[in-house]
């Protein structure tokens, strides 16, 4: 065996495993998406086993495209992912710049900050939606009730009472509702992933060219223009990394959506697939193929953007 053949062969197990992992289920999904295949049917029991004789052509795809949830789910997927990316990058940069210079207890603050990243996503969701955001029993409910009680007390005051009686009662927000559940999901995922962004940006800031900065200060550059023209360009690559890794994880967000609202008006694509898969495997598979296409569009875009900088 030649000098380099064996070393090169060493990557084949990894490649083969991933190839099987990708192609087999994907092939089956593709197959199921073209046949009628349901888990339970009293009227048409022959549909409950996958078979070519139940061929439906593009029927499942039409069915999915016509269902009103489909467009909603795509919009929601994109809305949730983009909001999380935007918030984590902005917050990440601000916090990284804040804690990058040394101050008493810097090490402890770092440890406190990174902790949310290690929390299991399912725990994250149950914790936030129940104990923090619940409109009655959670901290939100308790805080709103406290403020209302305080206002009620102030209204009884002799002179100023008239002023406070103009104030409205505060209403706690229910984050399980259709309009607000996406916000809750964005909030909890941002809490979990901002630490990731902060740590990557901090690592990058530590390698910033200090001499260049000092020169800029001598030239009279203010804090803002230092940040704008030196720090921000330096953070270009790390921002690309943060965006790419997070996009990979958040496009398949599921636990949070399910726990917050059971998809009530707040479905994303993975959730919609799960819903179809309760009975209609054909439709679930067709939606799955749409999700693969969407992920590929995002992937091509992201890998183009990041790939070059990663490989140098």
């Amino acid at each position: 065996m030649s000098d380099r053949k064996l070393p090169r062969l060493l990557q084949t197990p990894a490649v083969l495993l991933l190839l099987v992992w990708m192609l087999v289920p994907l092939g089956m999904t593709l197959y199921f998406s073209f046949i009628r295949y349901v888990l339970n049917s009293l009227r048409r029991p022959e549909w409950t086993t996958p078979s070519l004789s139940n061929w439906r052509g593009f029927g499942n795809y039409e069915f999915v495209l016509k269902s009103k949830d489909f467009v909603l789910a795509i919009q929601n997927s994109l809305f949730i992912v983009c909001s999380i990316l935007f918030l984590t990058v902005i917050l990440g940069i601000l916090i990284a710049v804040l804690i990058n210079k040394s101050f008493p207890g810097q090490g402890i603050v770092r440890v406190l900050l990174i902790s949310p990243f290690f929390v299991m996503p399912a725990v994250n969701a149950v914790l936030w939606i129940n104990m923090i955001l619940d409109p009655v029993l959670g901290l939100q409910g308790i805080a709103v009730a406290g403020i209302n009680d305080l206002l009620e007390g102030l209204r009884q005051m002799p002179v100023l009472g008239g002023f406070f009686s103009l104030w409205p009662e505060f209403e706690p927000i229910s984050f399980r509702a259709t309009q607000t559940s996406a916000i809750a999901v964005i909030m909890m995922v941002t809490w979990q992933w901002t630490p990731f962004a902060v740590l990557i940006f901090m690592t990058s800031l530590q390698s910033e060219d200090q001499q260049q900065k000092e020169a800029a200060v001598l030239d009279g550059a203010g804090t803002w223009s230092q940040f704008r023209f030196l720090t921000l360009p330096h953070l270009g690559r790390p921002i690309a990394i943060v965006v790419m890794i997070q996009a990979i994880f958040h496009l398949s967000l599921y636990a949070e959506i399910e726990i917050v609202s059971r998809g009530n008006g707040n479905k994303n694509l993975p959730y919609l697939i799960g819903e179809f898969a309760n009975n209609n495997i054909g439709a679930a598979s067709a939606t799955g193929i749409f999700a693969v296409i969407l992920a590929n569009i995002v992937a091509i875009f992201l890998l183009r953007m990041v790939g070059k900088t990663l490989m140098e």
Partner: peptide, 13 residues
Amino acid sequence: STKMLPAAAVLYP
């Protein structure tokens, strides 16, 4: 890019 394959799409198979 295989990481971007949505798990939900291949769960049932």
